[in-house]
Amino acid sequence: MPDTEMRLSDAETGAPMVVIGLDERAGLPDLQMRLRELGFMEGEPVCVLRRGQPGGEPLAVRIGASTFALRRIEAACVRVASRQVK
């Protein structure tokens, strides 16, 4: 049974997630392409490691073996679902 989808920006800090897909966003051309180049691909494990303060921004996101800093608006383009930890 597939878990409920959510945006990466709404994912709980430290919760293991998996990338379901990427959305286009007006005002941020090429963002989707760029995220893909950095490894945000369908099926990749992803996790929000920590959030900056105040306002929970920016996000430090683990994808593959790399860590990237994203603003919320960027993370909102990534659709994710909860991942079962084996």
Partner: peptide, 12 residues
């Protein structure tokens, strides 16, 4: 005022 600010920066 309608600009979007991007970050998308690696933390090596």
């Amino acid at each position: 005022k309608d600009r979007q600010h991007t970050l998308l920066m690696e933390l090596p």
